[in-house]
Structures are given as structure tokens and as C-alpha cells.
């Protein structure tokens, strides 16, 4: 096994970056395994985009170290770029060119002689419009083309910035399916999103970032277990026809007894289990919301 095959997909060690006197990233460290989907969550201005720009070689960190597939990003930028795919938040496509021309152009930058343009466009459901100019595409179609472009070089590491932003549910589901498939094939995916549901559904691990610092990194399940509470809400009709609602904390010693008592008295109408959302956890851990 070569060094790059043994190494983690991404290793970030104590990176910092400032815009003038404003510190955008303050000593961030994390790693991402091959085949892992890593959610990067934070509000606007938290330092997500700056971190992604450093990871993709567009910015050079003031301090710290970044390696992708075992290669230092700023020493081997051409080799690193050859093996990564980036899906930007802004739909930065060449509008006067067709989808096919866009993909062929980017394939040529990667030195791919015979790119599977048709297969990629079929995968994102754009094959029937492949020769139309991108300027005639809807927002959703452009986003799907962005995804296809990020996959043109069959990357080992995929950076996705808000990949389903503004998409209809069907298109969003199609994109999520592709992300899972790529991860299953061994591609490391760094996902930046505001959509907590998406992050929860897709990510193997998530990192919470605000003000240039990471506050927590773990699997969504562990974060919920550590920081959230689970409960059961029982609605019952009492003998005097009054409707009563009981909220029982799940992670307590007395839960089973209290639930038995609640269901024994009165007529049970509904029982709902509730668990903290990732957004609740984010607020609890960082002390602020995602807006």
C-alpha cells in the first residue's frame, strides 16, 4: 500500500486563518476517513467556507497543516486537485455552454481523454437536456449539473457546499442517493449544510463550528445521547372527560414505572416519543442558532 492509500482522506491539524485583523478560523483540527460522510455545520460567518477554501487549496492557512490523502495540500496542489471534487454553493457553471460542453471542459482540465459524460448526465437525470445551454436550465438542473461536474474525475475526496440547497424534494433525494453511493464506493465526503435534517440523515459524523472554532465532533447519535434528552408524551382522557398530557423523560430510572402508571389510569389517546434534533443539540452545544 502506498502512503496515500494508507492515510486518512483528510487530516487537518490546528489550522488558522485571518482576513486582516479578523480571525476567521482559530485552530481547527479534525480528520475524515475514506468512505465517511463528514457534516460541517455552522451559521453564516462561522468559518466553514474559509476552512473548505483552505482544504481545497484556494487559501493558504496562516498556521497548521492540512493533508489530503496523505499529501500536503500546499506542497502538492496539482496532485491533490487531481483527486478531489468540489461542488460550490454558487452555481458557477459556464452558462453559454451546454451541460456536455461544461463537463468535457472540466474533464480536459483533469486530463481525462474519454470522460463518461453521458453516464454522469444520466445519473443526475440531465441526459435529455445535455446539449442545451446551461442558461436555459432551472436552478435544480444547474445544481444537479454541479454535482455531475464534481464527480467528473471520480474523486477520492468530495467537498459539497449546500448540495441540495433550493432543490425540489425529488432532486434533493436523488443527490443524497448519489452522495451515499459515492461514500459506499470509498469516497470521503465533506458536506457543508444548513439543513440539519440532511446532515443528520447523511452524515457519519458532524462537526459544529461557530466563530472559527469547532465545538463538537461526533456521530449525530452520540451527540444526541450526550447533549439531548429523549421523552415520551402520553395524551389520555380522564374519567371527567378532561384531556391530560404527560411528558416523561426517557433516560431516567423512574421512566418505566411512570409510563405504566400513566397508561393504567384513564384512556390513552396517543403516545409520542420525542428526541432532540441535531439543531437542538447545536443550540445547546454552541449556545446559538444556525441563522
Amino acid at each position: 500500500m502506498s502512503q496515500s492509500q494508507e492515510a486518512k482522506a483528510i487530516e487537518v491539524s490546528d489550522i488558522e486563518y485571518s482576513y486582516g485583523s479578523t480571525k476567521a478560523v482559530r485552530g481547527i483540527s479534525f480528520s475524515v476517513d475514506r468512505g465517511e460522510i463528514f457534516g460541517f455545520l455552522g451559521p453564516n460567518g462561522a468559518g466553514k467556507s474559509t476552512t473548505i477554501k483552505m482544504l481545497t487549496g484556494q487559501l493558504i492557512p496562516r498556521s497548521g497543516r492540512i493533508s489530503i490523502l496523505g499529501m500536503a495540500v500546499h506542497g502538492h496542489s496539482a496532485e491533490v486537485h487531481q483527486r478531489i471534487g468540489v461542488c460550490f454553493e454558487e452555481k458557477n457553471l459556464y452558462l453559454q455552454m451546454s451541460a456536455e460542453e461544461n463537463l468535457r471542459f472540466f474533464a480536459s482540465l483533469f486530463g481525462i481523454r474519454r470522460p463518461d459524460v453521458k453516464g454522469l448526465l444520466e445519473r443526475v437525470n440531465l441526459a435529455s437536456r445535455s446539449r442545451d445551454r446551461v442558461s436555459t436550465y432551472s436552478k435544480g438542473m444547474r445544481q444537479r449539473l454541479m454535482m455531475a461536474r464534481a464527480l467528473i474525475n471520480e474523486p477520492d475526496v468530495l467537498f459539497l457546499d449546500e448540495p441540495t440547497d433550493g432543490l425540489d424534494p425529488v432532486s434533493a433525494r436523488a443527490i443524497r442517493t448519489i452522495i451515499r453511493e459515492k461514500a459506499h464506493e470509498g469516497t470521503a465526503v465533506v458536506l457543508t449544510t444548513h439543513d440539519m435534517y440532511e446532515a443528520d440523515e447523511l452524515s457519519d459524523r458532524v462537526a459544529f463550528i461557530t466563530e472559527g472554532r469547532i465545538h463538537a465532533i461526533d456521530t449525530p447519535e452520540n451527540l444526541k445521547l450526550k447533549h439531548g434528552s429523549r421523552s415520551v408524551t402520553v395524551r389520555r382522557r380522564m374519567r371527567d372527560s378532561e384531556v391530560e398530557e404527560l411528558r416523561l423523560e426517557l433516560d431516567t430510572d423512574t421512566f418505566s414505572r411512570k409510563l405504566a402508571e400513566a397508561t393504567a389510569s384513564g384512556t390513552v389517546m396517543t403516545i409520542h416519543s420525542e428526541e432532540a434534533t441535531l439543531e437542538d443539540i447545536f443550540v445547546e452545544v454552541t449556545g446559538r442558532g444556525l441563522e
Binding site: 484556494q58 486537485h81 458557477n92 472540466f106 461536474r149 474525475n153
Partner: peptide, 9 residues
């Protein structure tokens, strides 16, 4: 689009 270009080799 320039950002997309410089994110390649």
C-alpha cells in the same frame, strides 16, 4: 467560474 477552474489541476 474561475473558482471552479482553480479547484482542478
Amino acid at each position: 467560474t474561475v473558482l471552479a477552474v482553480v479547484a482542478t489541476p
